[in-house]
Simulated assay, not measured.
Amino acid sequence: MKLLNFVAPDSGAVRPGILTDAGIIDCGAIGFSSLSMEALIAQPEALSSLQRAIEQAIVDPAGFALHLLDEASLRFAPALTNPGKIICIGLNYRRHAAESGLPVPTTPVLFSKFNNSLAAHREPIPLPPTARQYDYEVELAVVMGRRARNVAVEEALEYVFGYCTANDLSARDLQTRTSQWLLGKTLDKFLPLGPYLVTADEVRDPQNLSLQCWVNGELRQHSNTADMIFSVAEIISYISQHFTLEPGDVICTGTPEGVILGMPEKVWLRAGDEVTVEVEGLGQLTNVMA
Rank of each mutant, 00 (worst) to 15 (best):
S36W: 04
L191T: 12
Y134F: 15
P103N: 08
V143H: 02
S210D: 11
I251V: 12
F243G: 00
E154V: 04
A29G: 05
E280H: 01
L35P: 07
A141L: 09
F64R: 04
G281E: 07
R15A: 10
D273Q: 09
A29W: 03
E45N: 11
Q51D: 14
V104E: 14
A120T: 13
L47R: 11
E257T: 12
Q133R: 11
F76P: 04
D249G: 04
L50E: 07
P192T: 14
Q175R: 11
G28Y: 08
P256T: 07
R146Y: 04
D173Q: 07
R146K: 15
A98F: 03
F32G: 08
E265H: 06
H222Q: 14
L91E: 06
A39P: 00
L68G: 06
V279A: 05
L50K: 05
V151N: 00
Q207E: 14
A226H: 02
A39I: 00
Y134G: 00
N167S: 06
E155Q: 14
I235V: 15
N150K: 13
I86D: 02
C164Y: 01
A98W: 01
V275I: 15
A98Q: 15
N116Y: 03
S73C: 06
H67F: 11
G17W: 09
A156Q: 03
A39M: 12
L285F: 11
N150I: 00
R52V: 00
V250G: 06
F64V: 05
W181R: 06
V198A: 10
G162L: 10
P247N: 09
A171R: 06
A42V: 13
N82K: 14
R75G: 00
K266R: 15
S36H: 10
V267Q: 07
F230Y: 08
P16L: 10
P126N: 13
A97T: 09
D227Y: 03
G17M: 07
P206V: 03
R172P: 01
K113V: 12
S73F: 02
A77G: 04
E257M: 02
F6C: 05
L35A: 04
G63P: 13
A141E: 10
